[in-house]
């Protein structure tokens, strides 16, 4: 029963995506919509992403400073640990989990609301490919913008680590900077961007799917919005693991 349900939703999701990535009726309209989505997803999420990232860096700094206290591991390793843990895991994963909550639920609610108010029917009757017009710009916008947000989150997180460790005397500024500049492997950056792109696609497409096929009233819309976040989060964590396996 569960497997049949999974196959049904997976098949419908694949069909939606196939229809979503078809030739636009009017390129200019899709371009404008993509820019609007970039603004909504990117600029609209900057504050929350920055806020979370700064605390991730700060908490990591304090925790590792405590863990390494009294060991033979050099203190500057704290900077190195913050940088790599942020780039490899915390920035892409935590940022995208947060964005699944903010952007994903918003996408599901927006498209689901349009479905319920017959906006989608109105567009269909006009001849608009609604799956393309409503889904493609959101996915493309997120594929561009979310990796940028993740990169900003990684940078802010490192700054957060600095602010939590240097002014409080956990380690000196030169130690922290030395740590941040040590053992740099650019492969980790590739890993971060691969994760960001995959997670961005997952959270927008899954949320759009949840909204596009919503039926019923406000309870169903709320459920679709919740499902968008829950399924996006589960898939992000699953693919986080798979990418880690593939890249190591």
């Amino acid at each position: 029963m569960l497997f049949t349900k999974f196959l049904y939703h997976f098949g419908r999701y694949v069909m939606l995506m196939r229809s979503a990535f078809s030739r636009p009726e009017r390129f200019n309209m899709y371009y404008k919509e993509t820019l609007r989505q970039m603004n909504d997803i990117g600029i609209g999420s900057l504050v929350i992403v920055g806020l979370i990232a700064i605390f991730i860096g700060a908490v990591t700094a304090v925790q590792f400073s405590f863990q390494l206290d009294g060991t033979l591991v050099p203190r500057y390793y704290i900077g190195y640990i913050i940088r790599d843990s942020t780039i490899i895991e915390l920035a892409p994963t935590i940022t995208c989990l947060v964005l699944a909550g903010k952007v994903g639920s918003n996408i599901a609610a927006e498209i689901g609301g349009m479905r319920q108010k017959e906006h989608i029917d109105a567009m269909e009757i006009m001849g608009v490919n609604t799956s393309a017009y409503l889904v493609m710009p959101k996915v493309i916008a997120s594929l561009f913008v979310i990796p940028m947000l993740v990169a900003i989150a990684a940078f802010v997180s490192v700054v957060g680590g600095y602010l939590a460790s240097v002014p409080t005397g956990l380690l000196s500024s030169s130690e922290y900077v030395l740590g941040v500049r040590s053992f740099f492997n650019d492969r980790n950056l590739t890993l971060m961007f691969v994760k960001a792109v995959v997670f961005a696609y997952l959270l927008t497409s899954v949320s759009a799917y949840q909204g596009y096929y919503v039926r019923g009233g406000s309870i169903e819309l709320g459920r679709a919005s919740t499902n968008a976040v829950v399924f996006s989060d589960i898939l992000i964590l699953l693919f986080d693991y798979l990418i880690a396996v593939v890249f190591t």
Binding site: E25, K117, E118, H119, D121, A122, E124, I125, M126, G127
Partner: peptide, 20 residues
């Protein structure tokens, strides 16, 4: 052909379905 035909169709919805 369906897209071309749909351009010849106009519809007024019960709730107007105007984009808010």
């Amino acid at each position: 052909e369906l897209r071309e035909l749909r351009m010849k169709v106009g519809m007024l919805f019960q709730g107007s379905a105007l984009f808010d």
